[in-house]
Design a protein around this nucleic acid. Structure first.
Lengths: 145, 145
DNA sequence: ATTAATTCATATAAATTCAATAGGAATTGA
DNA sequence: TCAATTCCTATTGAATTTATATGAATTAAT
């Protein structure tokens, strides 16, 4: 399951990708329909994840860091929610050994979940913010949801 | 993320599939290395999910319902954790509308997550308990993890 | 210099979910 | 009657999620 945080993060980034300009968090919150104060915290995390840059003060705001086609969904989801894999032992970026496993090399649960994690990563690591923006038939009107 | 409950359920079912016989929950707990009392509750859920049958009293126990190749991982995971999809609006079995979405038909987040959900379902709905058992190189020794 | 708009940092809180454990009732076979 | 078992209900502690609140720091415009 994606957390709300992660979903909001994706929506915020889609807004920024579509807009192309610097936007204050209040404007993003409105366009993405996301709780304003919660979004503030999320934007900070996204900045730490190198997905955007922020400017403080009057006329400040947030802007995508780099072009939308270079920011992959997998990167965002990992930054917000951690591993893509269903269980830690099947994760490549967040691997962690199971307590109830003696020989993870042969663990059949792990084998199965590694297949799942690879499929998830395949999709999310090949899909960019630009892909998301282009996906909408109404992108001219900036309606993505 | 799979819950512990779901992981334990899968391990219990693999034990039952490999064994082929009726087993008391205490024996399953030991072989699967799962907390005994927690497992009891899980086995009840698995019975309700039609994955096994239970007999009470002395010499009672739990037995797979049907053959291992007919019990799919997707069925088990859904029964334990609910939807496979990353977000409810992308689920086919547990669909639920988003509050922050006006037109889900065009929602780009939903489109992306539907792709993910389809990949996950593809894997889990085509993999059976028998596949899991056969996956282990050490299945003769009944060591699966 | 003051003010308004903004990000940033920290603390808090309510609600929910997770991962169990406890105790005992009901059932069954010996 | 006894021992082994499933089944049922309740509880609990911990962690996580989803926020909200407050105010400090920064910046541009007047």
């Amino acid at each position: 399951m994606l957390s709300m945080k992660c979903k909001y993060a994706l929506k915020a980034l889609v807004v920024l990708a579509a807009e192309g300009t610097k936007l204050p968090s209040s404007a993003i919150a409105q366009k993405a329909r996301v709780p304003a104060k919660f979004l503030e915290a999320i934007l900070t995390d996204l900045r730490k994840a190198d997905a955007l840059t922020s400017e403080r003060g009057a006329h400040g705001g947030h802007k995508l860091k780099g072009s939308p086609e270079k920011i992959m969904l997998g990167h965002v989801v990992r930054a917000m929610d951690g591993m893509l894999a269903p269980i830690p032992c099947a994760s490549t970026f967040y691997y962690k050994k199971c307590d109830d496993c003696t020989d993870e090399k042969i663990c059949v649960i792990r084998h199965a979940m590694t297949e799942v994690r690879n499929k998830i990563a395949e999709v999310l690591d090949s899909m960019s913010l630009e892909d998301l923006v282009n996906m909408s038939p109404k992108k001219k009107q900036q309606l993505f949801w």
